[in-house]
């Protein structure tokens, strides 16, 4: 009697081995979402040909193509790309500034005992302030221009980045720091030649996590005071119930966030192999 080796289930239980099936499983939620939307959109269009709430895919493509290729009559700009550029630059500036400040603070607090005493409690306290709550203060204090939008992104992201990076610096083995000094390093060299290079992949990872928060604050700030930007456009389109603009913009923002995240992840993967190896 021939016996077949026992094979664990493809799908069920904690010992399942989905194999190639996992690609199908990964695609399934996406397919279901798209199908559900398409189904209900079509149904509503049947009932009411001037339906605006759930535009069809073709309507959205048409509208987006217009925004991306036909210059605006008043400003002469390609609205879609102009919005994208403005928003991306704002996030880059806001998160960039937050990165710069949090790296400095993390080194200061993480390396120097006096820096810890001076800065630890203060930055922790700052991180409890809900950033959106101080948006009015920013608007009053520095006006409705670019600075307040970048400022909100900065304030929204830097406290957590600082906390994360400080923890990382403090987590470096004490032995390594003592060893560095016995190898003849100056304190300056310890920071810039030993600690900072080891921080870089963590900085990239912190940026990855902060970009998500950056988008939230960007959209809030643009919704309140702006004349262009992806967030601004969404809030403006809401006034006309222009779902054929809002939905593609949301998808576009999601895609941009995904692209940025993937790039940063790949940078760590290819340029800092030691980082992943030492994490486990």
């Amino acid at each position: 009697m021939s016996s077949r080796p026992q094979r664990s289930s493809y799908i069920w239980g904690i010992f399942a081995r989905p194999g190639r099936l996992k690609w199908l499983l990964a695609a399934l939620p996406f397919l279901i979402s798209i199908f559900t939307y398409t189904f209900f959109s079509a149904k509503r269009h049947e009932a009411n040909p001037s339906e605006k709430l759930m535009p069809s895919w073709s309507q959205m493509v048409k509208r987006t193509t217009e925004l991306a290729t036909v210059p605006n009559k008043r400003t002469g700009k390609l609205v879609f790309w102009d919005d994208t550029w403005s928003s991306v630059i704002r996030i880059a500036k806001g998160v960039g500034l937050a990165t710069l400040v949090s790296v400095m603070l993390a080194l200061f607090i993480g390396v120097f005992p006096a820096g810890h005493a001076l800065g630890q409690n203060f930055t922790n306290t700052i991180s409890f302030i809900p950033p959106v709550a101080i948006l009015p203060i920013l608007l009053v204090a520095i006006g409705v221009g670019e600075a307040s939008k970048i400022g909100l992104i900065f304030i929204g992201t830097f406290p957590l980045m600082t906390r994360d990076l400080t923890l990382y610096v403090k987590g470096l083995p004490r032995e390594q720091i003592i060893k560095t000094m016995t190898l003849g390093a100056s304190q300056w060299q310890l920071i810039w030649k030993v600690i900072f290079p080891q921080m870089i992949p963590r900085i990239i990872e912190t940026i990855r996590l902060s970009i998500g928060a950056g988008w939230i604050f960007l959209i809030v700030a643009e919704g309140i005071s702006s004349s262009e930007g992806l967030g601004y456009r969404i809030f403006q389109a809401r006034r006309y119930m222009a779902m054929d603009t809002i939905i593609p913009y949301v998808i576009w923002i999601t895609l941009l966030a995904f692209i940025a995240d993937t790039i940063l992840r790949l940078v760590i993967h290819f340029f800092y192999p030691w980082y992943r190896a030492n994490k486990s």
Binding site: P173, E175, K179, M181, P197, Q198, W274
Partner: peptide, 19 residues
């Protein structure tokens, strides 16, 4: 005084720079 190059140290772990 503070740690400097008059002394060398080899620990059991964490001796090397991982990067």
């Amino acid at each position: 005084g503070n740690p400097d190059s008059t002394r060398g140290i080899v620990y059991q772990r964490y001796s090397l720079y991982p990067n």
